[in-house]
Amino acid sequence: MRHLLLLLVGLLLVLPGRALALTATELLDAVDANMTFDTRESTMTMTVTKAGRVKTYELHSYGRGATEGAVEFNAPARDKGTRMLKKGGELWMWLPNVEKTQKISGHMLRQGLMGSDFSYEDMLETASLKERYVATMGSEEVVNGRKCWRIDMTARSADVAYPKRVSWIDQEYKVPVREELYALSGMKLKVFTFSEVQDFDGRKFPTLFTAEDQLQAGSKTELRFTDLKFKVPLQEEIFSLRWLER
């Protein structure tokens, strides 16, 4: 009888927890639901701080699904007119001074976008986390004042830019609060933080991204969405080389 009682008490204690707890896959699904999109149009300011020098860019971007994106720089004057187009796994760039469209590849993809801590490769990687990584659930931690779940991710294939990724997911909003990106060797390459979460018709989305390149001391980039719309109709032309060269 005593054993039966103990078993009942045990079940009462364990079962609700099991029922409420998310698996890592479910959590990634929830994060992907917030962070990926069908279409998106946004205006952003990107502030790059390097060795105490600060430079701010204004840019306008369009996105359609995980494979198509377009960015145009509007300020400062020297960079105005620089446009980039991501199509499939390829990145194209309009060089305003040369007045040419160039395909960007290889070494260039690992360079910082306009000297920022976000690489061109970071721009290209907008596929869902679930598609790119196998995740395991970690502990509950408080990060930047938010209760989070930690998940440890390992890339599914060798062509993913960061083979290891650790994310702290906001328990309330199901968006990342902090991400640490690692090389295969275990060296920490970058730290991303996400904040100022806003609601967009039920979708939670952080409107301030920061990136810190761990290999460059004192280097930091803030990407702030000043205007952000999801599910907007976008012209087909935007995602073509013609748009780059217009």
Binding site: V48, K50, R53, K55, Y57, P76, R78, D79, T82, L95, P96, N97, V98, K100, G112, M114, G115, S116
Partner: peptide
């Protein structure tokens, strides 16, 4: 010098 892209032909 600020890290912006600079293209030239």
């Amino acid at each position: 010098q600020d890290g912006s892209m600079s293209d030239v032909a």
